[in-house]
């Protein structure tokens, strides 16, 4: 830790924060010398009865999830891993959440506390290790998804959830519009849903809960059980499913779940009950972004493709003003992950 602080304090050049390096593909641009945080690892405390785990940010996700699993618990936001080395810090910095997100919550929803090193190397501790804590501004959640531009994440406390007794994946043949309608209608009913996706005429639905509850919900909904449900969702979560391969740019579209099918060139995969849609396309950003903005959503050029179009959806000027001020506050010299989120950031 001292070494990291020293490095930040003394550098005159931008630093690029990196642990496992599995998400190097993500973000606007990679600038500066690597600040390797992978050695800052280990689980600090874990009390299953408290539903809280605290770990240093270089800890691989796999290590955390293995430990939780031994106690029948899990990370509620089902984070993706883009390689065995994916770390807790990288996941939180990107704010990535997996298929369970619309039903259980996002990465930031589970963050209880965060320790960071700001752009001057100062060690700051926000939030805490208890489930409820509203003292001070919620800087821990502000750090989640900030792509390391406001600080180097060094330690985080997360709320965890008990694992469901059983899970079952169902498949239904239906077109996109019908699938969207069902995903939203069912989400408004008391069903033990934990994931949903649609691709190429098939709706996939995951049920999680007590054995009886899953069985009864299956009886209510019908659908064909998927024989390899667990693997199906893992491949989808980690972008190992066939949909994600190929050289076309991959766009992540985030939009209100009820938005009708988007008429955009390329192939689409719908996740998050309709609120997240993946698009493999050559279509121009100037075609995609206005369409999303019109639906109240935004588009991210997630992987592959020419980044000069802007990886992240541009912000309105008024909002950008407050972003710039926050960046200046936490990283006055602008050295942390500069340019990763927006140019000049």
């Amino acid at each position: 830790m001292q070494a990291l602080q020293e490095r930040i304090r003394t550098t005159h050049l931008p630093l690029r924060i990196r642990a496992g390096g599995t998400k190097d593909f993500y973000g606007q641009s990679l600038a500066g010398d690597i600040l390797d945080v992978s050695a800052h690892r280990g689980i600090v405390s874990y009390e299953p009865g408290e539903l809280v785990i605290t770990a240093k940010c270089g800890t691989p996700l796999a290590e955390i999830e293995t430990l939780l699993d031994e106690h029948g618990q899990m990370l509620g936001f089902e984070p993706p891993r883009f390689g065995a080395a994916s770390s807790l810090g990288g996941t939180l910095a990107c704010g990535f959440s997996g298929p369970r997100r619309p039903y259980s919550g996002s990465a930031r929803d589970f963050v209880l506390g965060m320790e960071i090193l700001d752009g001057t190397g100062q060690h700051l501790k926000f939030g805490g290790r208890v489930i409820k804590n509203v003292a001070g501004y919620d800087a821990s959640r502000l750090m989640t998804g900030a792509l390391g531009t406001l600080g180097v994440l060094v330690q985080a406390s997360l709320k965890v959830l008990p694992k469901p007794q059983s899970e079952l994946t169902l498949q239904f043949e239906m077109d996109e519009a019908t699938a969207l309608k069902h995903m939203n209608e069912w989400a408004g009913r008391p069903l033990p849903l934990s994931a949903s996706a649609w691709q190429s005429g098939v709706l996939f639905l995951r049920l999680s809960g007590a054995n009886n509850a899953v069985r009864e919900a299956h009886a209510k909904l019908g659908g064909e059980p998927h024989l390899h449900g667990t693997e199906f969702w893992r491949l989808l979560r980690d972008h190992e499913a066939a949909f994600f391969s190929g050289d076309l740019p991959l766009w992540r579209l985030s939009l209100p779940a009820c938005t009708p099918p988007l008429d955009l060139d390329g192939k689409q995969l719908i996740t998050w009950g309709g609120a997240e849609r993946w698009l493999k396309t050559n279509a121009a950003a100037t075609e995609i972004r206005p369409r999303l903005a019109a639906s109240g959503g935004h588009a991210t050029l997630f992987a592959v493709g020419e980044k000069s179009v802007g990886v992240f959806h541009p912000l309105p000027a008024a909002l950008m003003k407050y972003h710039a001020r926050l960046k200046k506050l936490f990283d006055p010299r602008g050295i942390l992950n500069r340019g990763r989120l927006y140019p000049d950031f």
């Binding site: 704010g95 997100r101 619309p102 996002s106 930031r108 509203v134 501004y137 919620d138 800087a139 959640r141 502000l142 989640t144 998804g145 900030a146 406001l150 985030s254 939009l255 209100p256 779940a257 998050w272 609120a275 997240e276 109240g296 959503g297 935004h298 991210t300 992240f312 959806h313 541009p314 912000l315 309105p316 008024a318 909002l319 950008m320 407050y322 972003h323 926050l326 989120l341 927006y342």
Partner: peptide, 21 residues
């Protein structure tokens, strides 16, 4: 300012979390 969105996330920093509380 409109902070957050009716989608499940919004671009940029999580100002919604910052403003809440």
């Amino acid at each position: 300012l409109v902070i957050g969105s009716e989608a499940l996330d919004a671009p940029g920093y999580d100002l919604l979390a910052l403003l809440t509380g």
